[in-house]
């Protein structure tokens, strides 16, 4: 306990003594973590979108024009029913569609309440037997008079899976790169305090201090830098993302029929991820900064 308190006190003193560099590195690391944060919210949203539309994997959705009459609708349903490979057909009016959407969005469903007029069209849900049938129905239905457009999710899911994979790989590469840069930034910052206390460290070593004893304050210093940076970037990511959801959330919702994950929902994950990254970067950075110093 005594040592922990001592280490924290020393670390804070070191940071204050070296505050220019400490502030600079906190900002640099925050900026990098902010980039990671944006990647994080993007991939969370793509995942959610993929999950939502996966539920309709075997379904072709046929959207009807606003002007299509009930009689016309009936005849469209009949003609689709008789296509090859169609297993069932179901009409869904725009009110039902909204209800379904709301149920599916679960926690984010309340977002739909502020919509005012229902923007969804009447539609026909066509369950298909296999991929070939889906392609055929998709093409054929599009040609029928009174049909506005069709949506077939298999394609979208496949595309999205590709995008998600690509994003994950690039996110990992960028993340590794940024983490390495952050570790270097931290270790260089701490190196300055290590140099400033070089004499003290060598005396400690003569008296028989273990490496961990010597490292203590610098270790804590690194962790403090990492934690401050992660706090700042988590906060900034939250605020920025919240703004983005405010600004374009509705549009995304109507275009993709999938909500943006609300910022509040991400907050706890964001804090946990950033804090552990901050601690890790600080810890590794400080150990590296002292490596040469301690191995004699």
């Amino acid at each position: 306990m005594f040592r922990l308190f001592y280490n924290i006190k020393q670390a804070v003193l070191q940071l204050i003594r070296n505050k220019g560099m400490a502030v600079a590195s906190i900002f640099a690391i925050s900026a990098m973590m902010l980039i990671l944060g944006l990647f994080f919210v993007i991939s969370v949203n793509i995942n959610l979108f993929t999950e939502i539309i996966k539920q309709d994997y075997d379904t072709v959705e046929v959207y009807l024009e606003e002007a299509t009459t009930a009689a016309k609708t009936k005849s469209i349903i009949e003609s689709i029913k008789h296509m090859n490979g169609v297993s069932s057909v179901e009409f869904r009016n725009k009110d039902q569609a909204l209800k379904v959407l709301k149920r599916r969005w679960g926690e984010s469903g309340y977002l739909l309440d502020s919509l005012g007029e229902n923007p969804l069209p009447n539609s026909i849900l066509v369950k298909v037997e296999n991929l070939n049938a889906a392609n055929r129905v998709n093409v054929a239905a599009n040609k029928i008079d009174g049909v506005e457009s069709t949506k077939y999710y298999k394609e979208t899911v496949d595309k999205l899976t590709k995008v998600t994979n690509f994003l994950s790989i690039s996110a990992i590469i960028i993340m590794l790169f940024l983490i390495i840069v952050s570790v270097v930034v931290v270790s260089n910052t701490i190196k300055l305090t290590v140099f400033a206390r070089a004499k003290e460290i060598s005396i400690m070593k003569y008296v028989g201090a273990t490496n961990w004893f010597v490292r203590g304050p610098f270790f804590v210093e690194g962790i403090i830098i990492g934690l401050i940076a992660s706090g700042m970037s988590a906060g900034l990511t939250y605020v920025l993302y919240d703004r983005i959801v405010d600004a374009i959330g509705m549009k995304v919702m109507t275009i993709l029929s999938s909500p943006l994950v609300p910022a509040t929902y991400l907050a706890s994950n964001l804090i946990i991820i950033f804090a552990s990254m901050g601690v890790g970067i600080g810890a590794v950075g400080s150990i590296i900064s002292m490596r040469k110093f301690l191995d004699k």
Binding site: K199, E200, S202, I203, K205, Y206, G208, N211
Partner: peptide, 22 residues
Amino acid sequence: SNRLIPQHRRKIGMVFQDFRLL
């Protein structure tokens, strides 16, 4: 091994020309 150096040094007292006080 290097890991035992601190233990080893604790059994030796060191005094220098320049005192080396903090």
